[in-house]
Design a binder for these strands. Structure first.
Length: 439
DNA sequence: TCTGGGGTCCTAGGACCC
DNA sequence: TCTGGGGTCCTAGGACCC
């Protein structure tokens, strides 16, 4: 029987801050997102005081002051470094470590004597605590999905932070108390779908017919059913190189001039290029986007993106920055207050070198549905005239360029998602397929 | 005024070829 | 001109995770 452990750092970012401020042990601590916008990590004490995940600072400012909650800006360099130390420590206890996220790892424990595992994991936990200062919880089970659940139990109920879930009878009792949305891979949406089928707990999902679940949730859901039954479907994966690398930020204050956008984009590109080289990859293309603040309904809205493809894939920061800033100059429109920008490196190798394609017709401020559909009609005509159902307009005198390949798909999907989010318009959902049919 | 920043996977159906 | 089957690749849409 295979055995897995999920090791999860408790309140990771908050714990990292505490390592360097030990006097805050036992006191409430929260860590904020970029620009100190909202809460992204909370210590147990902060959770107990009722600070929700994602809480916007401006709403909870007074409350946090009242309760003397210690508030930190995020320091990702620190967290990344601490994470690496934690992972390295765990490698001393088993060679099979899958780093799943910055604060979690799955361990492969097949071959270990099950009877001695809890103690082995207690030792691991203590070593991590001692060498890094970070508290972790460990869940052990025959599948990854069950290990995730065991980890919850470990975190909530066991004093030594380790829980092994192997006894079938005990498992039945535990699963009966777990809401389906708390299962790894079951979100709110899928949860609602399952509840409509009369499945509300992990136990009910465990006992459901795999075929029925496959119908409702695809093979992904069926796997979860098997995993809940102790049949391992998800194996330990080695860390793979990223298929796309993103770097984006919302600005602390609105940006209106092109120069500042160029500078921001240049630094994002440099960051992304660093990640790229670290995993020994080259980018075949770079995708660049800018947008105004969608939360400010009264502001004129503009959002656009461009892709530059390279003749030869590159990892050279200067070339990438040249491409990105040139894209920004094409994307920039005066008269807007920009809120966010970013780049995504892709391995699009089928792009022609140096070509820039814009994704969006130039959206005017405060477009109405009627205006938008008129604009779309024009765009359709342009695309029809160009012979290919491509997504670009010719205002810049740029040749239209069809996009293909896996990365192109990814980028397009991302962009579609943004468009839908921005306009909340079904017209945008259908437009792309209609364009495709023009061919 | 403020409301994060990253990622991955699956599938139905169409296009195209034989 | 119409019909049909099998295979592969791509697109578009729908999810999920931390």
């Amino acid at each position: 029987m295979p055995l897995y452990a999920l090791v999860d750092c408790n309140n990771f970012y908050a714990s990292c801050e505490r390592v360097f401020a030990p006097h805050l042990n036992g006191k409430p601590v929260v860590v904020l997102s970029n620009n100190d916008g909202c809460v992204i990590a909370r210590s147990d004490e902060a959770k107990a005081l009722g600070v929700p995940m994602g809480a916007p600072l401006h709403e909870y400012d007074g409350m946090m002051r009242r309760h003397k909650i210690n508030v930190f800006s995020s320091n990702y360099a620190l967290y990344g470094d601490m994470s690496a130390r934690v992972m390295k420590t765990m490698e001393q206890f088993t060679p099979d470590v899958e780093v799943y996220s910055i604060d979690e790892a799955f361990l492969g424990l097949t071959g270990f004597d099950p009877a001695s595992l809890p103690q082995h994991m207690r030792n691991l936990r203590q070593a991590v605590r001692q060498w890094t200062g970070i508290p972790v919880s460990v869940g052990i089970a025959p599948t990854k999905t069950l290990a995730k659940l065991a980890n919850r139990i470990a975190k909530k109920y066991t004093p030594d932070g380790v829980y092994m879930m192997t006894d079938p009878q005990l498992m039945t009792r535990i699963l009966g108390d777990i809401e389906i949305e708390d299962i790894w891979g079951i979100s709110k949406r899928w949860g609602a779908r399952l509840r409509a089928l009369g499945i509300g707990t992990a136990l009910e999902l465990q006992r459901a017919s795999p075929r029925q679940i496959r119908q409702a949730l695809s093979v992904v859901g069926e796997r979860i059913v098997h995993e809940l039954n102790g049949q391992s479907c998800l194996t330990l994966d080695e860390v793979q190189p990223k298929q796309s690398i993103m770097s984006s930020r919302s600005f602390g204050t609105m940006v209106a001039d092109c120069q500042s956008l160029e500078e921001a984009i240049a630094s994002y590109t440099a960051r992304a290029a660093e990640k790229l080289r670290r995993q020994h990859s080259r980018a075949g293309g770079i995708y660049v986007f800018i947008r105004t603040n969608r939360f400010r309904k009264d502001d004129p809205q503009y959002s656009n993106a461009a892709m530059v493809g390279f003749d030869d894939a590159t990892d050279d920061t200067a070339s990438l920055i040249r491409a990105a800033t040139s894209a920004i100059r094409h994307l920039y429109r005066p008269g807007y207050r920009y809120h966010k920008a970013g780049v995504m490196l892709t391995d699009l190798t089928d792009q022609d070198g140096g070509q820039i394609s814009l994704f969006n017709p130039d959206p005017a401020p405060d477009v109405t549905r009627a205006q938008q559909s008129r604009r779309m009609a024009v765009l359709d005509q342009v695309n029809a005239a160009m012979g290919q159902g491509t997504l670009f307009h010719a205002a810049e005198g740029l040749a239209p360029k069809p996009r293909t390949g896996a990365q192109g798909r990814r980028v397009l999907n991302t962009e579609r998602w943004r468009m839908r989010a921005r306009f909340k318009s079904p017209a945008y959902t259908t437009r792309w397929s209609e364009l495709a049919k023009v061919r």
